[in-house]
Computed example of a mutant assay.
Amino acid sequence: MRADALRNRTRIIDTAREVFREQGYDASLDEIAKRAGVGAGTLYRHFPTRDALLDAIMQTWVDRVEEAAEKALAFEGPPRELLLGWFDVYVGLISLHRGGPAKITSALGDPDSPIRTKCEVLTGAFERVMQRLRDADALREGVDTVQAARLVGGVATVADDGGLDAAAVRPLLVVVADGLLRA
């Protein structure tokens, strides 16, 4: 890729991330092109669909997911604190952009989703944390990782839609964690 094309692509991604953070994933692509200082044709040449642009934005997010899972797995405290810490991080990861929790949570486990590969990374990270809890015999029998991720994603969606802060979200996550862990 030519240097100017690479600069345009990077500028589009950075601008889209900012616009999506402000306006949600349904923000105008023309607005993104305008703010990035490129024509709509340039944006569509790099990203023929909205999903292609989302995919590019989410790649750096994928790296953050992997780092967060490794950090959670390095935690050496009680299982409940491990799970709650992971839930806090998970909510933060899927809540980076307005509308993100609903979009990501609804795509979990959907093989036809355009963000399927990113959701698989997220689910894989969630599974590693859940497996650690299973290995410690701390998780209730039959807890499904995707269903647990959807529960936490539902809490994040409510927080996103209602403008709830972390202090209002934490008690909801405690209820979910307590329901997943052995008594």
Rank of each mutant, 00 (worst) to 15 (best):
R98A: 12
G41T: 13
E22T: 07
H46S: 12
A36W: 06
D30A: 14
R80G: 03
K34S: 12
F20A: 05
K118V: 00
I32D: 10
M130A: 15
L82P: 01
P101F: 10
P111V: 06
G109H: 09
E70A: 13
G24M: 05
E67T: 12
I94P: 03
K71N: 10
K118I: 00
D88M: 03
E70Q: 12
T123I: 15
Q23I: 00
S113E: 05
S95V: 03
E31Y: 00
Y90N: 01
F75S: 08
A27M: 01
Y44F: 14
R132Q: 15
T49M: 04
D55A: 14
A56Y: 10
R132K: 15
L82T: 03
D137Y: 09
G99L: 07
R98Q: 12
A72K: 00
M130V: 15
K71H: 11
R134V: 13
P48Q: 08
V65R: 04
E70R: 13
G24K: 07
L54D: 09
D135P: 00
L133V: 06
T60Y: 04
G124P: 02
A69D: 01
R21K: 11
L43Y: 03
V91L: 08
E81R: 13
Y90A: 02
I94Y: 06
T123V: 15
L108F: 09
L122F: 08
A69Q: 12
I115C: 07
R116W: 10
M130Q: 11
G124F: 01
K118N: 13
G24V: 02
F87A: 08
I104Q: 08
S106Q: 13
E120Q: 14
D88Y: 02
C119F: 05
D88E: 12
D26S: 11
D88C: 05
P101H: 09
T123M: 12
R132W: 05
L122S: 14
D63F: 01
A68Q: 08
L83P: 07
A74M: 02
D135T: 13
D110C: 09
D88R: 15
R35I: 00
I57E: 14
D30R: 14
D63H: 10
I94K: 06
A40V: 09
G124E: 02
P111S: 06
W61N: 13
L83Q: 03
L29Y: 05
I104F: 14
F87S: 03
P79I: 05
F87C: 10
A36Q: 07
L93S: 03
E66K: 14
E76M: 00
K103I: 12
S106A: 14
R35T: 00
E66S: 07
E76K: 14
Y90M: 01
E70D: 15
D55S: 14
L73R: 11
T123F: 07
Y25H: 13
D137T: 12
I115V: 15
A56W: 10
T42P: 02
A68E: 13
P114A: 05
